[in-house]
Write a protein that binds this DNA or RNA. Structure first.
Lengths: 210, 210
DNA sequence: TCTGTTTTTTACCATTTGGTAAAGGCACGA
DNA sequence: TCGTGCCTTTACCAAATGGTAAAAAACAGA
């Protein structure tokens, strides 16, 4: 029923596909889909343009491949929020992991940012099917924590948006941050401390009287 | 010393320049600099492509013109933070005005976001000369408020980043927000309340004992 | 080593795109 | 009414860009 035999990919295929995806990530994240050219990607991947087409069925397919490849990893910190854990600590851990990802994978962050800002023209369905269910699930979980007074009263949806906005800001708007903050290392340290404080103050549950 | 005589622009010039800038804003904000085409802008402006070039010296010049035209207005809420005002109320007013701008001028927000994400290749100097002085000035002000215990201890730079990140998120990532939030009107209301709470909790000064 | 298959490259090509040349249209004062 | 100078458009162009054809090169199994 699956149509094609789907032969096992050779070692060369695996290596080259990886190289192309990495090059594509580099170029797409810096210039956006439209601004990226196959020549740029080819050069970054160290191979000729037609060879890209040999491995991926055109520019659009390459873009989708990059997005899909990274999507799961990108959402893994959210997925890792544990129902059984201590609510405040779970959320703060999530925040810390997001900050870490902004630092380690700014290209991935900008790739998604570019796509979303431009209206997610090539990722729309993926948002519905991949992101939305996970988002909804975690919102329900956080709401239950709020209802049990284990977190301060907060709108789970808005909370997650805030976390995304702040943590990804450091990667997405890095060019601006760099202009405004002289010492980069100190800046990151201050950012970590600030974000920790901010969400702690927002989320620490009130002392109830009953 | 100013070189050209700089004749007064005719009514037609004023009208058409405005129309072009608006069309350019529309197209640039949706597709980014590279993704936008002169044909798209021409169509949006309701005139022929060479006519654009008659009014603006090429695509890059148009982009810079749009950015510069909007820069001042975009920063006006930050500039409006008043040294003489009540600290917490000043900051919250700033936050509210930023939220309002996200709602009313999402195109402007996305225009800047696109530019910054891609490394501000055409706006770099403008950030240094236009944004940085204002940013530094307001950081000093906020720091003085903190030192006087009129605000909770907070890193002014990080505070401003947080405000930008959260408020602009609703405009820049609207495509994502729309997928995840069903009721748009309710979403905006919740956003307003959430943002208000978040920054109030962060900034309300501790009761000091001495 | 020989052979069939996979991988890669060298020309190409059609379209798109930023920009130009030059002529036509139009408003407005003399 | 007639120029005169501002405005606008119709062709065009050269470069860039996504993609193809087909041959060369590298590779793997017998």
């Amino acid at each position: 029923m699956t149509g094609e035999p789907a032969k096992k990919p050779s070692r060369i295929q695996i290596r080259n596909r990886r190289r192309i995806l990495d090059a594509a990530l580099e170029v797409f994240s810096q210039h956006g889909y439209r601004g990226a050219t196959l020549d740029q990607i080819a050069e970054a991947a160290g191979m000729s343009k037609p060879n890209l087409i040999y491995y991926f069925d055109g520019k659009a397919a390459m873009h989708v491949a990059v997005l899909n490849t990274l999507m799961e990893e990108w959402l893994s910190p959210l997925a890792a929020i544990d129902e059984a854990g201590e609510p405040l600590e779970e959320i703060l851990t999530y925040v810390r992991r997001k900050m870490e990802m902004s630092r380690k994978f700014p290209r991935e962050s900008r790739l998604f940012a570019n796509e979303i800002i431009q209206g997610a023209p090539r990722m729309g369905p993926n948002l519905e099917s991949g992101l939305k269910p996970l988002f909804d699930e975690k919102c329900v979980l956080i709401q239950s924590w709020v209802d049990d007074a284990r977190l301060a009263k907060v709108d789970p949806q808005q909370l997650i948006f805030s976390i995304w906005a702040i943590t990804q800001h450091y990667a997405d708007f890095e060019a601006q941050v760099r202009v405004l903050i002289e010492d980069e290392t100190a800046g990151w340290k201050a950012a970590d401390a600030h974000v920790e404080t901010l969400f702690r103050k927002l989320l620490v549950p009130e002392i109830t009287s009953d």
